[in-house]
Each structure stands twice: as C-alpha cells, then as structure tokens.
C-alpha cells in the first residue's frame, strides 16, 4: 500500500514515544550510568570506565551461563517448531465446535502466569507427590529426581518449556494454514500430489511468514526465560539450569553487585538485539518480496 508522506504523523506517535521513553529510556540510561561507576555507598561513586565490562566479559561463570542459554534456546527451537507445525497440521481444517475447543485448550498454557507454570511442573514432577515423578520411579523404576540430578533437571525445564510454548507455534501455524484457499488443495488433488508434496509446496510456503514470527518470538522469550526455571529448580542443582536472566538477577539483587550487573545487562541486551535485528530484517524483507 502506498503511504502518505507527512511528518505531522509524529504527533500520532508522540504518546507512545512518551510512555515507552518513560519506562525504557530513563531506566536504560540508569543502567548505562551504573555500568561505568563503582558505587560504594549513597552519594559515593567513582568513575571506573570500562572496568566492569572487562571483568564481566572475562567471567567464566558468565561464559557457562551464556553457553547453557544458547544450547537451551537452540533445543527449544529445534523441538518446538517442528512439533508445533506438526500439531497445526493435525488440527481440523473446517471451523466448528471441535476446532474451537482444540484452540481454547491449546491456548490454555499460554495464559497461565509463568510462576504458576513452574508450580504446576513442581507438583507434576516431584518424585514424592508428582504424577510424572511417581510414575517414572514406581512403575518404570527409573530413578528420576529433578532436584538432585543436573541432567534430569535440565530436561524437566526443557519439557516444561515445550509444554508451555509449543501452543504458540501451533496457533501461528494454524493461522497460516487458514489463509490457504481451498482451491489450492483441490488443484493439488487433481494433479495427484502426494501428502508430502502438498505440505512442501503449498502449506510450508504459506506458513513461512508466520513461522518466522514464531521463530522471532520464541527465540526472544526463550533467551530471557527466568520465572519458570526459578520456581522449578531455582537454577540448580549446582548451576545446571542457571540461564542468563537468572545469572543477572542473582548478580544484581542477590549479591547487589550493581556495576558488573549493569555492564552485563547491556551486553545481554545487545546480544538479544543483534539476533532480533537479523530476524526482523528477514521478516520485513520477506513481506516486501510477497507484495511485489
């Protein structure tokens, strides 16, 4: 669509700018301020330049947390996107009570407060009172204990995230599938296209746009995951489920190391920004390609 060129449109944007600036720029500037100072007490601070950045960048525990975070985000995307697409394909194509019920059930985990998601999984997987925990231990005689074994703990967090967020991919994929006209399927049928060919040449290209949005949203959210592992495992045992947000919160609120925490915040933000810029540019350019 051809847009009108008019700089007065800034007046329409102004309220948003003010609100977001109030809750984003002022705090962000505070972070920048903290990150270059050593705050010894109220009203006592020393300018230290890039010292905190150097310290944080050389912190091996940060490297571990970053590596853990990247592995986690990668696993989340690798499981959730194919699974979500798969489930979206099994949803009934025609609208009706059954389709609506499925959608409502699917969306349910998305609207549960994040710490309640953690609580649900604590109750579900505890080896003494949880359904999954007891079943694995008593019936399959598998010594499952997510509070003691780092691997079990990590996998529990992963399964929880899959449970929590796959529905988002399903809903996005379903929205993409709904936009395909029935005529496409009929044409494919006449051509005698196989089920796979229909998926590969009709459904997948139509879902590409929404799947990119899904990728962007999922990457963003998995990269700042905090509440669910905090409630489920508290970052442990050891540091096995300490992801970046958890690490940062511990640094800032737990130990009150404001300077390093601020420096780390900015690095963290820049990492997220970099990835998101790539995804965002891809989405925008893709939209342009389709319009032409």
């Amino acid at each position: 669509m051809q847009k009108w060129a008019d700089n007065r449109a800034w007046f329409l944007i102004l309220p948003v700018f003010l609100v977001v600036a109030f809750s984003a720029i002022i705090p962000l500037m505070t972070v920048v301020n903290y990150s270059v100072q050593d705050i010894l007490g109220p009203g006592m601070s020393v300018f230290v330049g890039s010292e905190w950045y150097k310290e944080v960048l050389h912190n091996p525990r940060l490297h571990d947390a970053l590596f853990r975070q990247l592995t986690f985000s990668f696993c989340v995307l690798a499981i959730e996107i194919p699974l979500g697409v798969g489930v979206a394909l099994t949803l009934p194509r025609k609208k009706g009570v059954w389709a609506s019920t499925c959608l409502v059930l699917l969306a349910l985990p998305l609207l549960i407060p994040w710490n309640v998601v953690g609580t649900i999984w604590v109750m579900f997987s505890r080896p003494d009172i949880g359904l999954a925990g007891v079943t694995l231990n008593e019936i399959f005689h598998f010594p499952y204990n997510y509070t003691a074994d780092p691997l079990h703990s990590w996998l529990t967090v992963l399964v929880m995230d899959v449970w929590h967020w796959t529905p988002l991919i399903v809903l996005l994929g379903y929205a993409g599938l709904q936009a395909i006209p029935e005529a496409y399927y009929q044409a494919a049928k006449i051509d005698g296209a196989s089920r796979f060919a229909v998926f590969r040449y009709i459904q997948l290209p139509k879902m590409r746009g929404v799947l990119l949005i899904a990728l962007l949203l999922r990457f963003m959210d998995s990269f700042m995951i905090y509440t669910e592992p905090f409630v489920l495992t508290g970052g442990g045992p050891g540091n096995s489920t300490t992801f970046l947000s958890q690490f940062l919160t511990r640094l800032a609120v737990g130990q009150f190391d404001v300077g390093p925490a601020a420096a780390f915040s900015l690095i963290y933000f820049l990492i997220v920004l970099l990835f998101c810029f790539v995804f965002y540019t891809t989405i925008v350019n893709l939209g342009k390609g389709e319009a032409q």
Partner: peptide
C-alpha cells in the same frame, strides 16, 4: 519500539 519488547525484563529490574 520492538527492541523494548525484546529487552529482557531482568535488565530493567534494578533501575525500575
């Protein structure tokens, strides 16, 4: 605007 959606809330915790 979108970068604010991308900012990890943990970053803003202390200044807020």
């Amino acid at each position: 605007l979108l970068t604010n959606k991308m900012a990890p809330p943990a970053v803003f915790l202390l200044p807020f």
